[in-house]
Structure formats: structure tokens, C-alpha cells
Design a protein around this nucleic acid. Structure first.
Lengths: 274, 274
DNA sequence: CTGACTTTGTGCATACGTTCACAAGGGCGT
DNA sequence: ACGCCCTTGTGAACGTATGCACAAAGTCAG
């Protein structure tokens, strides 16, 4: 989702696999905590919420760990996955923005654990600077460069308002950071070779809304009761009747072209396709 | 990433496209705010951080909006994308867990805007229940079912500790919720037809760490100075010399099989492939 | 009205990801 | 030592996503 150039596509280990390794790792830790020493691909896959063939193929990219007829040694696999992810070393991280979100992030436990440590948290508001969050004193953003240099930080977390994000990003880059986790609702523009991942609440909600709406339309098309569970409902009933099937665009400039699935019938028909 | 069965793959509009629509929508709002009435696929693509061909193909799935030789009418496209995403209706949302994260979420502005409204926030801690967060009074989790039924909520946000998440999830499902946004670091198990999306800070960091490590290895392999920018650094220098290249697994059960890329030379070689 | 110019919408080729299904390989009982 | 049974690791088939490159379709000047 956030591949940025320079890092050409084939690292030897596919991007989709990398995205799942942390999930496997977490599942493995959970197994280890329960004292389980060996696990089959089937069990681990279930714990991680994926298909077992996929899990095996993913793990096969790391090497041939695992014993046929038996499964994988949990502890050994934890080590191998950790190593592949680069978690056998410490990654100092800084958080920029000490608002509600920055606060939550700094306090987040699973954060500090396994491999990551918050070196510092910054804010530009003089009233916030100096306050304490989870054993850390909030510093002024002017100190960002110094802290990055001193601690050798290479991962920065942006938890500022949208308007400040790009500016902060530029400063982080100038200070040598090449990995950014962005919580601000903006598309950061960065040079090639910089890795940006974004976490965006409202985008996730919108995607959920799309699927929820889709389900609702399907249900209506099938003639089920639109009453309770999962219906668009916003208090009582869908506002102006047909909900998402209404046409009325605010206005249109050009000679209006073909508009597929615009009528109620069209929507129902599309929905029927399943 | 979080496709759950029931919803077969082909909704008519590809999943990858759906995941990008919210980004386009945000870019469109930004353009509209700047008073721009018309935009070309090239400009919009740049603003959204994607390739223009991809953008055009994505939009073509919604219909033939856009005028050849001119571009897209911003306001009209906002409407169409919003409608497709189901944002022309209101989506009441509940947040479970009023800790640091729940707090941050409830206060998040971009949340309440465009289409979503936080109906209620819950917590199980008697000390937290009754406190006020952004005009909302924190309710006890016992009231979850009643609130869902009364407000017709179909989207739930889980911001509890990991241990509580599955339990909360089950209650939400029982109360009729079919869309869940999960911030807890666990894989929720849900029946088919339920849509779960997860937001996981530590997973994102681990993915960043992987790429950062990869870049570092490449740099070392190319004989560049491992000094400053982006190096694994954790204070001074990589701990035990070669950093990620060290072999030493804690132990191994079976007769150890082929272990590719395990030696420093192996790592360098793999890195050289680029 | 015509013709030059711009930008959309899409067919096609390619790359990537997923899933099936099975041979290869190892443990374990006898 | 042998053979059965279990689970891994992977070849091959399929499906999805991406990006190029261009024809179709519109605008606008003259």
C-alpha cells in the first residue's frame, strides 16, 4: 500500500508476505506464552486468520524452517521471523505531535515492547512542551534534529494535525529519517527511497461503510426486512426513501453521459449479480 | 487485507479500487476547498499519490463521469464518490474502550465529519464511566446492546486492551453489528459476512523496520558508510557487530536443514540482487 | 463548420498474489 | 529396519491488479 520507489519490487521476499509476518509473529508469541512448543501450519494459520497454504508459502520465503510430519518449532520460528523483520535490533522511534493521538501512542504498551522504543515525543505548543507522558518529557519540535542525530533514530511517527504533517515530514527527512508512520490525514509527498506508511481512521471507516452499504443493498434487493441489523439506519429509517439509490447529483457540467447503475432498478440489478 | 467471506470477490467494483476511493475523495475535498472546479486525472492522481492511469481506471468503475479533453468536475465527482462509498447517509458509530486511544478517537475531528457520528463511547471501568469526552458521556459497556438497537448502529470501533477485544467483538456481533474497526492487537474471529478491518500500530512499525533494515543491509553491501542516516543505530553502534547478519538461533530441534541467507555473505549476496 | 489539441476511458500485456493439490521428506510404531 | 502416516514445501493454474499506449470523444479557436 505504501511502496515508494528506490526499493524495487523484488526483495526476494514479497511485499504481501512482509505485511503478514508481523501477524504470524504475534500469533507465535501467543502460542509461546501458552507453553506450546510446536505448531502446525494449519493451527498457526488459523491463529493468524489466514489460509494454511498461504502461511506455508510465506514462511517458505524465509527458509526451510519446519519439520515435515511435525510442524514448526514455535521458539525457533519466533526467532527467524523476528530476525527477518529486523526486530533483533533496537529501533529508536520518535513521535511528533503530543495531542490526543500522540499521547495514546506514547502510552501504548505493545509499542515499547519487542524492538521499538520511543526516544522522544515532540510538540510545537509551548503549553504542551515540558509536560510528561509515560516517563517522557515532551520536547519542543525545535529539538527534533538534535535528538534524531544523537539517538540515531530512523523511524518517525507523525501524529500532528493534517496541516502540520508535511512540514514535519520534511524536517524528519532532512534530519535523515527514511521511515515514516503517518497518522495525519494527508498524502505525504516524499522523495524516492523513503518509506511511508499511513494509518487513517476515516479511510478505514469509509471502506467499512462501503461494504456495509453494499450488504444493505443486497439485503433490500433480496426482499429481506431492512429493519434492524446492519441497516443504514440513522435514528429511524433511511432518510429519503431509497437511500443510496437516489440519483440527484448537485449539478452536472457537460452533456450527461451514460450513468450506469443510477436508477433504483440498476442498483438492485447490480446487487443481484452477487 | 480484511476481506471476510460471504462477500464474494467481485462486487463489480474491485477491492483495490474501493481502498483508494477515500483517498481520492479527500484529495477532491482539498481541491474544492481551494476553489478548484475542474481537475484532470493527472492532477488528481498526483494529489492522491497514485499513477494517473490507475486513477482513471478506478473512476471508470463508478461510471463515465469526466469530460474528455477537460477533466473531472470536482464537485460532481465528490458527490459520486461519496455516494459510491455510502457517505450520503449517516453512519452512527460506537467506540468501545475509553482509554488513551478511545479518547483520541472520540476527539478526532475528521471522524465526526463527513458521514460518521460517534453515537456513544463505552468503557467497563466504573471510574471512567460517567466522565465526559468531547460532549459524550462515557457509558458502561452493559449499555452497548441498548444503544446499538436504539440508534441503529452498524459500525463498531474496538479500542480496548487486547484481552477484552474478542469478548467485546462477540457482543457487538450479537447486537447486530456487521462492520468492525479493530484497534486491539489481536486477530478477531468472526462469522462469515462480518467485515473486520484492523489498525495495528506495532504491525506497521514492524513492516517499516523490515524495509529500513533492508535498506541498511543494501547500503552496507554497497560499502557505504553505515554512519548516520537510517542506520540500525541504537545509541552508539550496532550491538554485536554484524547486526542482522548474525546466525545464532536460540536452539534448533530437528536436524538443521538448509538455511539460506544465514551467513553474512549470504545476506550481502541477497542484498546485491537489489 | 472544420480541424487541431487535450484528456478520458479501455484493451492488452505483464506482474503479483492466492489457492489447489501433491510429491518429498521426516517421525514413529512395530 | 521397514513401512505407514502426517505435514511441509512447491509447481502449476487461476484470479486480481498495474501500467502502457492509443482510439474515442470532447473543447475551443478561427
Amino acid at each position: 500500500m505504501s511502496r515508494s520507489s528506490t526499493d524495487n519490487g523484488h526483495h526476494g521476499i514479497p511485499e504481501a508476505t512482509v505485511n503478514r509476518l508481523p501477524v504470524y509473529l504475534r500469533a507465535l508469541y501467543a502460542l509461546a506464552d501458552r507453553g506450546i512448543a510446536t505448531v502446525s501450519s494449519e493451527e498457526l494459520a488459523t491463529a493468524a486468520g489466514v489460509n494454511s497454504a498461504k502461511l506455508r508459502k510465506d514462511l517458505s520465503h524465509l527458509g526451510s524452517y519446519g519439520t515435515r510430519g511435525v510442524g514448526y518449532d514455535v521458539e525457533y520460528l519466533v526467532y527467524q521471523v523476528s530476525r527477518e523483520l529486523g526486530l533483533t535490533q533496537d529501533w529508536p522511534v520518535i513521535i511528533v505531535g503530543a495531542g490526543n493521538l500522540g499521547h495514546a501512542l506514547a502510552n501504548y504498551g505493545g509499542f515499547a515492547s519487542r524492538g521499538f522504543r520511543v526516544s522522544a515525543i515532540f510538540d510545537s505548543d509551548p503549553l504542551t512542551v515540558g509536560t510528561e507522558i509515560a516517563t517522557l518529557v515532551v520536547r519542543h519540535t525545535d529539538e527534533i534534529e538534535a535528538v534524531i542525530a544523537r539517538h540515531g533514530v530512523s523511524i518517525g511517527v507523525i501524529a500532528t494535525p493534517a496541516a502540520a504533517a508535511q512540514g514535519v515530514c520534511d524536517r524528519l527527512l532532512a534530519a535523515g529519517i527514511t521511515s515514516i508512520l503517518n497518522f495525519a490525514p494527508v498524502v505525504l509527498s516524499v522523495p524516492p527511497g523513503v518509506d511511508v506508511r499511513k494509518v487513517d481512521l476515516s479511510i478505514e471507516l469509509q471502506i467499512l461503510a462501503f461494504h456495509a452499504q453494499r450488504r444493505a443493498v443486497v439485503r433490500v434487493a433480496l426482499g429481506e426486512s431492512p429493519a434492524n441489523a446492519g441497516a443504514p439506519a440513522n435514528g429511524q429509517a433511511p432518510a429519503n426513501g431509497a437511500g443510496p439509490a437516489d440519483t440527484g447529483p448537485p449539478r452536472r457540467r457537460a452533456k450527461d453521459s451514460r450513468v450506469p447503475g443510477e436508477t433504483p432498478a440498476g442498483v438492485a440489478a447490480r446487487a443481484m449479480v452477487t
